[in-house]
Design a protein around this nucleic acid. Sequence first.
DNA 1: CCCA
DNA 2: AGTTGGT
DNA 3: TGGGCAACAACT
Length: 632
Amino acid sequence: MKRNINRSTTSRKKRKYEETALREKRDSLPVINFLEGLKIHVHVANFGAGRLKIFEKQIEKYGGELIRDLPISSGEITHIVFEESIDAEKLKKLVIPAHFPNAHFVRCTWLSLSVKNKTREHVVGHEIETGAEKLKGIDSKSTLVIAGCSKNVNSSNHTSLDVNAGNVQPCHCSIECSSGSTRSLQILPENNLEACDKSAHGEQVSHNLVNEGDRLLAPPSEEKCVTNSKLRNFKVKWESNESLTESNKTKYGGERLEPENHENLLKKSTPQGPLNKDKGSTNVKAFSKQLQSKFVCSQPSTSHSKGFNSHITKELEKLAAAYKSKNDTWRAVGYQKAISAIRNYSKEITSREEALGIRGVGARLADKVSEIIESGKLRKVAEVCEDDEAKTLQLFMGVWGAGPTTAKNWYIQGFRTLDDLQTKATLTRHQQIGLKHYSDINSRIPREEVAEIENYVREAALTIKEGLIVMVCGSYRRGKPTCGDVDVLITHPDGQSHTNLFKSVLKKLHENGFLTDDLVTQEDNGNQQKYLGVCKLPGAHKKHRRLDVIVVPYAEYAPATMYFTGSAHFNRSMRLLATKMGMSLSEHGLRAGVVRQGREKLTEGYLLDTPSEESIFAHLGLEYRSPQERDH
DNA sequence: CCCA
DNA sequence: AGTTGGT
DNA sequence: TGGGCAACAACT
Ligand SMILES: [Mg+2]
């Protein structure tokens, strides 16, 4: 069941929309070249793949010269941009500051702020103080600096590279030691190293094969040493070798960056890594757009639907609803995807082949479309609509607090009507309320009434504390003419007054009977985050309405607003995009540097600054979309 | 369900 | 831990 | 064959 839920709450991505790519090309022309004359390199370390691309793209967009591959030394480079968590100590493990006498070593906040203000910001406050003595550079051969390597001799008597660097493709190469001497060695699978002149078996010499600061020199050009996608996922493990104990050796030794997710998205357009810089590299812009174009969140929702095929989508919607009530959510998602594609199709579909050409419509759905075209309806739909079980499940799911599992159980117990539930079923407190207000809760709210409720809540809140921000999000903010419920977000600009606000606000709202039922509320918990309940405006003939309130700290205002505005589909799409970029998005914030193994998070990463919704879009490399454009 |  | 809910 | 439209809070 848990697996089903997880499966049911995730879903597919959308592939159509060649139009998206076209529009995006048009939009990407530079407006201001405030980076003109600057030669900027973005260092890969600790950046997620996508985030790196975004910064690189921005440099090009605003007239800067992007130095894609960092040479050993250069007097020409003006800026090297690092990820936020890189401090001076870490920086020195990545580059030799003295080899870039004219470069500013800045955190990417400098670039973010510059882009935000469309002006070249001063580096003060963003610069990483290296205290570098100025030296002249050597040559421009590309290298990979060994920033962390395990000295531990493993079972096969091999020194291994820092596993967090990703796997380096097995090859012959050489190491240039800090002392200046070089040594030939072989990289084996799993990053194990072996000296080419290795003599005896299991020699202790192996743990001195490489040291921090050594540089991995490019192998002969024939032999590809490090694939780009691996390099793009290069991470630095900062623990000193000395501190590696047996226990954390095991811990880190078992972990691998999983570049596969990125690879799938990267491989079509990724450049060669620094070790193969002569191969040239490609099209950062295309990459980023290609990544995004698969995500609904990159594309405005088309509000003006034509309705050429509403006779088709109407039928398919019924099936989608039926599958959803049967807990077959991924099938429902597949239907929903196709429905969305067909709805946006610009003319009436007249053949199976035409339907098959639409992204998201496969053979089976094309058959169904064909049947609708020819007969006007689907046997399958008729079957479902007559189906006692499906109809009953959908009826029961209308009870707030009852999902597919409960509905199914009730059905198995022989219940068929709401009255059966009222008189015979075991109901949770939620379900009792849900049943009591079944009709009202399942009816739409005109947006005018939503505005009334908003004002009622705002006035109540403002009697508790001045300066509170009270705004309605959800479908109301997306501009829909009717809403299923009212989603009120409350915060306070002072960053403090939101604490313990629920208790007093809810008490106030209860006073005159505005709140009629509480569903989810934790008023004993000072950390309460949400209230779900039922309210009714004063006056006759008013319906009971579902009211959701969240109270958030001001620091989370933007991500909370994003979440609460939705749509759900939009949120899920944007969150998936974030994961593909090595980030994580929730209502609490946007994190970067998140390391995952499959779907499991290994590293929390760190919070990015998200003062506005715009900043969240920007971090993800997306054009801003207004709430109305998020109605997917 | 669709798709790679 | 499983279910439901919010976007 | 398995991911896709996520990542949370709260109740039971
Ligand atoms: Mg709503």
